[in-house]
Design a protein around this nucleic acid. Sequence first.
DNA 1: TGAAAATATGTAAGCGCTTACATTTCTCTC
DNA 2: GAGAGAAATGTAAGCGCTTACATATTTTCA
Lengths: 345, 345
Amino acid sequence: MNRRLSDTAPNLPTLADVARAAGVSTATVSRCLNSPALVQTATRDRVLSAVAALGYSPNFGARALAARRTGIIGAIIPTMENAIFARAIQAFQEELHLSGQTLLVASSSYSPEIEADQIRTLVARGADALLLIGHDRDPGIYAFLEQRGVPVLVSWAFDPAQARASIGFDNRRAMAGLAQEVLQLGHRNIGMISAHAAGNDRARDRIAGVRDALRDHGVDPAALDLIETPYSIANGAEAMARLMALPTPPTVVICGNDVLAVGALQMARQLGLDVPRQVSITGFDDIELATVVDPALTTVHVPHREMGRAAAQLLVGMVGGGAAPAPVCLETKLCFRGTLAAPRT
Amino acid sequence: MNRRLSDTAPNLPTLADVARAAGVSTATVSRCLNSPALVQTATRDRVLSAVAALGYSPNFGARALAARRTGIIGAIIPTMENAIFARAIQAFQEELHLSGQTLLVASSSYSPEIEADQIRTLVARGADALLLIGHDRDPGIYAFLEQRGVPVLVSWAFDPAQARASIGFDNRRAMAGLAQEVLQLGHRNIGMISAHAAGNDRARDRIAGVRDALRDHGVDPAALDLIETPYSIANGAEAMARLMALPTPPTVVICGNDVLAVGALQMARQLGLDVPRQVSITGFDDIELATVVDPALTTVHVPHREMGRAAAQLLVGMVGGGAAPAPVCLETKLCFRGTLAAPRT
DNA sequence: TGAAAATATGTAAGCGCTTACATTTCTCTC
DNA sequence: GAGAGAAATGTAAGCGCTTACATATTTTCA
């Protein structure tokens, strides 16, 4: 049988062609490409000119098959249309590039089913390791990855109770810190707009953080007016409208992220409410939007880039049987800007 | 030699294991997975249960090597931290997913060198086809891709003068349309903030569009106060400050994209200038930011999602020797919002 | 009813590379 | 200058899959 005559595929030079042209064995050519130090300079030069002359470049499938690695690292994020993930992922990929790895990103649209599907796809596409967001997912998925020998790093979350490798920040403590400040200012009637907590440990931890702070101040955590809604400016606005329509509307609305907060801010303006004099609003993430709006958003800064960069380093170390690193916890920082003030008395 | 005993890699089941378990040949198993219609239902069921029982999933490298395709489509965008690319790429990937293809994205940080490097990387990673932004690049790159038999689709630009497959919109005509409106309102003293035009045909075309409109109105195109600056809100603001410091500052600032326009808007506010009464500002792209700022940005809407979706369909058709489709031109739309008005008289 | 046509399955030859091991060729050291 | 050790290169066995072609089985219809 002869597939070389397929009319569409060009006949590319192979390792053997290069070896022939350079008068060496295929092993030597392979070594020139993968561990040049093992080859004498003169030979190497001869081989490399042959490579250049023929316009050779290695066949990916063959290399992956023989080496049992692809050099591809997978990452699954909820959506690319979100600055926080985009930013972290950008840093992640820049760092991977330095170690010669390539990033393969997929997005789950915040759906556990799609995420599971994407995980399988990435593994089927040969990902050597995976970066995931948050711990929360079907244990079967972790078992599957374990069985396939694909190392996993969980990001965006720090939870010492989880044994697996992870890098992130303490969502709960960070949000509790912000809520403390809110309470200190005298707010007692508190609203919260959050992403859906089911299957989203970041959202859940942030809500828990607010409740922690309430408890610390002797406020009943159950009294928190909480609305869960999908991630978007419009949804943030809509939730804000509902909170403000309450019999006793909150004097402050703590949002689970900046996007929801910007929506809330827009709605406040639309309702003719003065922020922060009539109602305070806070965000979480510190994305670019936070400083574009007026007044600028009081929020929690998360070191996304740093997280992306560090994640890449950890993951590269885990490929090829490196021991799982200890969980890493990064620091967040409160950013006081224009949308938070004491309640009107 | 026996590599199976490597202590890190797990011993995964192979096609042959499945074949043995199901009592069929490896060919039949392969067919079950790739063209189920060719296999009798009873046999197929037997094979699929064996697959499930063993937890089998195909080895990527081996499949790619034998089939001479990876199912990976590459895309290179300037940056992931830009909503317009993120949005288009998201739609692109959703559509690819429907045809069982996987997207591999890389970013060039607007650098031709990095882009060339990334193109080589993606091809080396087995990309079956490539999506690129804009036509502008070293002809050697196109030659390389041609030689490797990797189909390319250029997006974001429509230029009938370019023979290659492309999908985009007419940046020049779209921007000319906006500039016409600006001139119609009576503006004659016009400033422009653009991304760097070198190596960026989109930016160049948009500038050309403004000059076209000027010429149509009998204004000397050379009189355009043009500042080129990298893509960011801060740079837009800085450029705005420079324009406003001119002896006769422009009455309108046309920006090459929304991000620069938002920067300009911020600076106008900071300078105490009333937009649009004292100075008008326009953008291009219609990203979410455009409606978040106050006043909302007058801009040009680009059908990013539609472009991404259509690009995926075209590219899938081109893999495996499909004929190159004719260039596609999508329509843009002017969005009149709050930042454009007649000049103060 | 039997031969041709259609359908289902098996056989086995690669796909192009990496790498364990074997072999050859240098470099020392005494 | 001989022997030991190090360095450079070659040999060839897979890696796990797809698919052309061969073979076996069933269907169709004159």
